[in-house]
Each structure stands twice: as structure tokens, then as C-alpha cells.
Nucleic acid binder design. Sequence first.
DNA 1: AAAAAAT
Length: 607
Amino acid sequence: MRTSWADSADNSANGSGNSNAWAPRAAYVPPHLRNRTMSSEAPAAAAAGTAVAASLPANDRVNHGGSIPHHGGYFKADNGRQGYGSGFQSGGGGGWNGRGAGRDRGRREVNPFENDEAEEQSLGEQENTGINFEAYDDIPVETSGENVPPPVNTFAEIDLGEALNQNIQRCKYVKPTPVQRYAIPISLAGRDLMACAQTGSGKTAAFCFPIISGIMREQYVQRPRVARTAFPLALILSPTRELSCQIHDEAKKFSYQTGVKVVVAYGGAPINQQLRELERGVDILVATPGRLVDLLERARVSLQMIRYLALDEADRMLDMGFEPQIRKIVEQMDMPPPGMRQTLLFSATFPKEIQRLASDFLASYVFLAVGRVGSSTDLIAQRVEYVLESDKRSHLMDLLHAQRENGISGKQGLTLVFVETKKGADALEHCLCVNGFPAASIHGDRTQQERELALRSFKTGITPILVATDVAARGLDIPRVAHVVNFDLPNDIDDYVHRIGRTGRAGKMGLATAFFNESNLSLAKPLADLMQEANQEVPAWLTRYAARAAYGGGNRNRRSGGSRFGGRDFRRDNSTNKGTDYYGGSGGGGYGNYGGGYGQGVTSAWD
DNA sequence: AAAAAAT
């Protein structure tokens, strides 16, 4: 008994008619018939696709709503001016009548767990069998730096504070994940940290818990009184708007009833609402770089009280595209220097040259790498197929078609398709819709509203296929992504790692399929190596390409020959980079092969 | 060459 979107599409095709059927009849036609039917069937299918697309906004409430309560409707116009800053800072400037005392007392804190409970009940998903934590005893972990604080085994061992402990329970986190076991005590000890841990391994909580706990202790700190300027104590930066939203949502849960106020700021959304939130007081500011720079230049935010700086996807934040902005924020505004603040850098991948850059921001830091066992790549079955550029579309539809027939993992699974360009994303989305595959797309040329809508309709299964550029490659935690297709492979193996990390999360299995052809030669070697290390079957033809690339010139890849994932502390790397045993433990799996569906349900302490 | 990120 299947409950996938395919069924509902079939059902509506078979009759009842008035639902938003994607495909009135089978719009998808096997490749060998496609030319013939295109002319006669395409118009109808296209019309259906348009109709559905048009109906989507109607189903979803206002913009910016949904999973991002901040922009949603709970914000009544008439209480928009209730609180005033955080007692310490706004001091009644700009015409605010000081009614409340202290921070934001006037407003009831929205319970961020409400939705979760409702969702859980409606899904009836009580499969909390948990992750196989025993396997984690074997996880290879490397720490380096001076006087590294020892790891903990339970949350109870750490004094995070009562309120935070309660939230951890509400989140149903039973035991800390490996990265949390190490990173939390290191951070609580006040140390700077550079942490490499697998995608989906609980990084967000790993840096949020110590920050929230630290701020709970320091809430009394006096902040300057500058009208309309916010003085956050912690700053969390991430490379995409959606990721910042996600971090904000999680941080709200962790900080519920702790008195710690979390605000998010990012581009593409009206700035006024964000300004209002900032005026109400902020302890933890989650932001994307561009909008933050804007706020800093308007002097609506000052970084002079920053005690904690966290960079999520830190390697991306410091790559060529972002580095100048990050330097500006961290080094050229009023943020306290390393040593006067605590800096936490997290990513699943950390190339050496980026580590070198990053060390500018750190003071006597601890390097932490949590190995591969139990991380998502062990849970992801990786396949590579040789597909000519001209065959990609039909091949993808064949895959999707087969998936629809068989059900990819028992339940409705979502499929995330990565392409290289924004135009390519639009084109492929259109192509899929026209052929009866319910797809949405997300990329940086779409409005923020469209991006959030696409993500939401994907998450909810309205469009169980999402075509995406790398905007969706990192950090996003989308439950039930069963299949990641690299329609166009990235040029960088790290990007591949992040992309496939959108599946196989929180201990669930995932499948990743890549389309490889002559234009991906430079990836042959690193991809073959990666797959081999993950105990995946490497096709012979790929091995041949890899061998050719090895001395042919293709391999200017950063971590060539080094240990996979995260990598080693570059401070230790005195040319001998044997790295081998580093991730040894896996020894053939322990998780079985792909195909199991979604067994465990420990909600995401992961990422 | 591309993507992301402010207006």
C-alpha cells in the first residue's frame, strides 16, 4: 500500500478530477516515444502544470509564513511597539514609550514546540527507536590543540541550565551526538573551536547550546544605551537565507523560556520587520552576511558586545565569494578581537587553505574532527551513472518514473535534484512539470517568497521533487529526502559531499545518484576515492576515468590524497598526510544496505 | 564559469 504522490496523481487521473492533478493522464512518456507524443500531449500537460503552480500560493498562507513564524502573522499591528528594546539598550530613544520593564516582557513567547507536536500526531510517526548510539563508541575522533577539555556522554553531565535542559527534552534529544559530546564541553570551557563533523550530525545544537547557556549566565551584562541600535551578545552567520531561517527556528526552540532572545536577519525580506525585532532586544542574532552589513552600516546593529561568534558552513563563509564580507564584519567593524570573544567554526568540510584563513579569526583554538561512522555518508547509497548531456532529462524521468512505480522507500520520499545553473533549474523544473512530475525549483534569481514557497511545497510533499542550485546544497534539514540526484555534478568534491548530505539524515537511509559525463572529468578521481572510502561500489568505467585524471592534470583537487571529510588540523599537517586510519571504524557498515526506509525518528538533534 | 549574499 503506497501513499506516495504518484498514487494521488494516479487517483485523480482516474476520475475524481477536480483536485489539482499534475497529470490528467500519463504525461510522462518513455524516452523512445517521447518525440511522437510531445506535440499532441504537451499543451494539456503544460496547462495542468500551470494550473497547479498557480494554485500553490492559495494553499499557503501569506508570504514568509509557514515554518518561519517570524514573518508570519502572529505579529499584530497594534502590539508592534509594545516592548522597547532590551531595557539596557534602547533607553526610550526614537519615541518609544517605556512601558515594560526589561526585555520584551510585554509579549507572550510563542511556544515553538506547538507545531512539532501537532505534526507528530498527524504523521503518527512514533518510531522513536533511536539511533544506534552504541556504534558511536567506535567513531574516530580527532582533537588537537592545547588542553582539550574531555568529552561528555550525556547532557546531564553538563550544566547547561534547567530551562535549556527542558528544551532539550522537548526536542526529544536523548543523548548528545558525537560532535555535541566533544564540542559542547570545549565551548563551555570558553575555548575557540574549529569543528568538522558530518552533514546531519547535530552541529546546530552543538554551537547553540553553549551560546544559550553562556548568555543565560551573563544576561545581566550592561549594554550601551544607544537609541535604535541593537547590541547582540552572539552572532551566528550562515551562507544562505534559508539556512539562517532554519538555524533561527532551532535556536528559538533551544532558547524557549530561557529569556534569551533570538532574532534573524536576511535579505530578500522586508527589512522593517527585522528592524522592529531588533529593537525589541536581541541576544543572539542569526544573519546572512549581506543584510548584516547593511544593518551595521545603518548603525542599527553594533557588534561591540559580541561574546560569541559562530560561523556555520564556515568553509563556505570563507571562500572567495564571501571572505571579504566576513572579514569586514569580523575584523573591520566593532567586534571584539579573538580572545575577547569566543569563536566557533563548524562545517562538514574544511579544506586546508580555508583553515589557514580561518585561523585569523581564532585564538588558541581546538580543532575537532568527528569521523565517518554513523555519519550520513555511511547511510547514503551512492550511485554514478554515465549519462550524456543530451540524455539527462529523459534519464532523470526514467528514474523518477521507476521511483513512482516502486516507491523509493516505502513511504513517500522526496527527491532533490541539483543542477549547475539557475537557468538550468528553471528549465528542468518546467520540463518535469510538463511531463507530469510535480516539481518546484529554488535558486538565487527567484524572489525570497518564491524560494520559501518552493521549499515549503517540497517539504510538505505537494511537490515531492525539488530542482535546486547550490543554494540548497548546504545545511538545510529537510526530512524525508530519500533521493538526491546530481543532475549536473559540481566541480568540487566538497560540494558533492554537502549535496548528498541532504539525504540520509538523522540516522535514516538515503540514496544519491549522479549523472557523470565527459564534462565532469575533474571530479572522476575525487569522486571515485570518496565512494571507495564510503564502501560504495565504484563502476569500472569511473575508475578508468579516475586513473586517467590522476596524472592527466584533472586533479587540482584540494584534499588530494588526504583523509576524507573534514580533514585534519592543518596545524599538524607537516607534509606527511597519510591520513589512512583516520576513519577506519566503518569496517563494512553496520547499517545494512540502502532500502530500509525511514526507521528511526530521533528528531534532529542532527544538524 | 557558477552560485551565494543588500537595496
